[in-house]
Each structure stands twice: as structure tokens, then as C-alpha cells.
Amino acid sequence: MAPKNKNPNGENVVPEVQQKKTQALILKSSDGEEFSISKSAAGLSVAIKNMMEDDCAGGVIPLPLVDGGTLARVITYLNKHAEDGASDEDKRKFDEEFLSGMEVDVLCDVALAGNYLDIRGLFHDVCQRIVNGMKNKSVEWVRKTFRIESDFTAEEEEQIKKEYAWAWEGVDSDAD
């Protein structure tokens, strides 16, 4: 899709009324991928909306903090939420499926993008999803999930466990 709106003679002729609904924007990821998105979908991102309003967009909006893979996911989300016929129930279902398929590293990327692009609903849901991976889980489980190596000594860890013994009661078993 061409970023510029010109007729075959090279003149800018897009009627303004029509422009609002149908015209697409181009979002450019940090790694140079370009994605086309309708203005109504892009407007669900407060950051992009502001850029459109400030008219500093010029048809192509560069997003230097979002890589292509993440941006594709974000656009899928925005398109669904901008869909005319989609009920709240549809969207909820979509969100559930959309997020449940993501690994933790993807969730983190999407969280970062959701925050940067100021898409509140997405950001909120992703953050919650990340934390759900920690609730009532063992320390070892959290380390494995987030690929963290402990730099505590065994003695230090034991000391804290002893002091807060109650926090280790009734924790889910690591067996998945």
C-alpha cells in the first residue's frame, strides 16, 4: 500500500471525509518492517493518535522501540478492537486467546510496546498475565519462568526462607 495519496497525475486528491475512515497509516518497526493499519485502529493507541493529530506522521510513523514481530501482534490486537461488529464478549474472547498463546518473553515485549504506544487495555491485560505466572508459585518456578539465575548464596536464601517461613506454606507444586 502506497503511503502517499496521489492520483495518477501525482496530485493530492483524497477527499477529506473519506480520508478519515478508510485511509491507512504505515507503522514502521525498529527493524524496518512496514505495516498498514486503518486510522481508526491506530487511533486506539493514544501515542499514535497524538502523532496523527500533531500531523508529524506524514503517512509513515516510525516506532523505533517496537520490533516487527511485536508490532504485528499489536496490530492484530488493534484491528480486532477497532472492528465495527465486534461485541465486548467477542473482544474478551479474542484477548484471552491472543494472550494465552504467548510465551513470557513475548508478553514482556508486548507489555513494553503497550506501554510505549499507550494502549491501556492491552498493557493492563498483559501485565496481569505476566504476574499470573508468579502467583502462589515457588521461587524456583519463577526463576525458571523468567529465566533468572539466582545470585544468592544458599545460606542467604535459607536465612530469608527461615525468617519468612509462612510465605512458603501452601505454595503450588512445581509439577505442571
Binding site: V139, V142, I160, W168
Partner: peptide
């Protein structure tokens, strides 16, 4: 509390 033991 458990989060505080994950790493330094």
C-alpha cells in the same frame, strides 16, 4: 516475599 528471593 518469595519474589524478593528470586535474585539480588
Amino acid at each position: 516475599v518469595r519474589a524478593s528471593v528470586v535474585s539480588r
